[in-house]
Design a protein around this nucleic acid. Structure first.
Lengths: 327, 327
DNA sequence: ATGAAAGCGCTAACAT
DNA sequence: ATGTTAGCGCTTTCAT
């Protein structure tokens, strides 16, 4: 089913069909009607691939992620809700396992931009190369507010909120499971942790600070190590919910009960944090809103609207059941 | 940055570059090396649009949805995890608001298939037109096990589970908020509800059976109507979690407390069901597993593997806090 | 081993 | 008002 099929059936040239499809001027009303009827009948729809190769605009926005996990899918929900208010369509692309997963953002962007999509949202990109000619918005990128339009949340304040919550409960021996060192968010969360500890004049035991890499698989080992120490912490602040869940699992594996033997606080407030046993106390990032803001920002950028290209949203404490005072 | 740029820089023709990129036979090793170095240097990546227009395979699988909401994003997580075990990449496409949202599955499929993707997973499609030449798997489609390869869960048994849970608690006046009448899953859930009621010899008050359409916005009105009746139900079985959440909100709006004044049970076990206040008792569909199974099925279909093309997964009761015995 | 050229489905400038 | 034609970036014969 292609345009030439429509043309043949309607007894016109492909050029005429193209004009009808794109609402171009200069086709007789009777022809328009006839062609449209054929299109309807045959259920013709222009091929995105071919269409975009030839024309500049596709009316499709891309959101590029490494994979679809709880974090990126929350952003997706927000972007999806916002895109309904525009006349764009949304294309989410997950880089494959090919190429060892590093540099996926550049690869995906190169593969899609210029042709398939009019602009892209990059989720936690680490290579922030300012491509020109393509409109790009980053969510929670490698570096802080750089030249690239960015949406993030107040990671530093959020980390202080988390740490102060543990301190307020009376904890002093507090461990930290860090995120991906290549992400600004991870740096800010660690900085917030240290700042709050310093403000409270509580020392940070460096043996209790580990790198968890933001993923369950990569965080469980470090968490277990940390909890296996003779002088183990009474509380752990994990840099994101997945690491926090991994920490809870590690604790369970060591015969520890959360929160009785160990308090755990996470970060992000992905839905999974509430499903975890016990439900996780965490710092909420307004992820759906961040997705929506990023999409709005991208649309504005494409439209040439003059506006602030850096959006930072507030974080807040969500108290559930994974933290209590130390025994 | 296109192939001709690489060719010019490397001092060869585009044809040669293409051969190198695709690992074709018949290029001198020295040339291969040189071209690859240039590709590396320039960060060249083939344009998906152009590439797919010309060649048959793209190594990209599509998952087509109406929008990114809790249900489809759970499927996405499962499909994403499974795709890592293959060498495909995953492209999720949300039909835009254009064209009044009906027939989106046909439109999206026509737009992407043939060119951009090697196969597609359709999420809750209602128009199950067996396109030929494109490999398609449906999740929870309009019709039951048809000719189209399908993944779903045992909706009928799940609905009986839900209804029997309410009956077991002692409820007799039980309302039902139905799903989208055009989806087989909705029909089966209603059928399961009626079957369980009949088995228990409890009558169904037709005034307490409404259509909620599976969405929060569309379910809240019917829920309010149902709860505003003089003889209001002591429990409601909502055909999915979003409708159940809408029912809880409607109850709250009427000054009713869940579960004290009204028990509510949902269906799906999307993460949001646990976040709801109170946490929702519901029927779990293994959504991530369904996404993974659909992807595996699609990959097998493309590879020409002989296998069962209909996968049905079990449902189970998840007890949380939204149901108690009637007062 | 390499390159020239045709063509994938579409759009747009240019005839007619 | 309609059709002819060139060309988007790429792959694939087919010459050389």
């Amino acid at each position: 089913m292609k345009m030439s099929d429509v043309a043949r059936t309607a007894g016109v040239s492909v050029a005429t069909v193209s004009k009808v499809v794109n609402g171009r001027w200069g086709v007789a009303q009777s022809t328009v009607d006839r062609v449209q009827r054929v299109i309807e009948q045959l259920g013709y729809e222009a091929s995105l691939g071919a269409q975009s190769l030839r024309s500049q605009r596709t009316n499709v926005l891309g959101i590029l992620v490494a994979e679809f996990e709880p974090f990126s899918t929350e952003l997706l929900k927000g972007a999806s809700a916002e895109v309904e208010r525009t006349d764009y369509e949304l294309l989410a692309y997950a880089a494959g396992a090919r190429g060892s997963k590093v540099g996926w953002e550049r690869r995906s962007l190169a593969r899609l931009s210029g042709t398939l999509i009019d602009g892209a949202i990059l989720v936690t990109p680490t290579v922030v190369e300012a491509k020109q000619g393509v409109h790009v918005v980053a969510i929670d990128p490698h570096t802080g507010p750089s030249g690239m339009p960015t949406v993030d949340s107040d990671n530093f304040a959020g980390a202080m909120l988390a740490t102060n919550h543990l301190l307020g409960l009376g904890h002093r021996r507090i461990g930290f499971i860090g995120g991906r060192p290549d992400l600004e968010s991870a740096r800010l969360r660690e900085a917030g942790f240290r700042k709050a500890m310093a403000q409270a004049r509580v020392g940070v035991d460096e043996a209790l600070v580990r790198v968890g890499g933001y993923r369950t698989e990569s965080a469980e080992g470090p968490a277990r190590e940390l909890l296996s120490r003779a002088e183990r912490p009474t509380a752990v602040f994990a840099a994101n919910d997945l690491s926090a869940i991994a920490t809870v699992m590690a604790a369970r594996g060591l015969g520890l009960t959360v929160p009785d033997d160990l308090s755990v606080i996470g970060f992000d407030n992905v839905p999974e944090s509430a499903l975890s046993r016990p439900p996780l106390t965490t710092i909420k990032q307004p992820l759906q809103q961040m997705g929506a803001e990023a999409l709005r920002l991208l649309v504005d950028l494409i439209a040439g609207v003059e506006r602030d290209t850096h959006v930072r949203l507030p974080t807040e404490l969500v108290v559930r059941d994974s933290c209590t005072p130390p025994r």
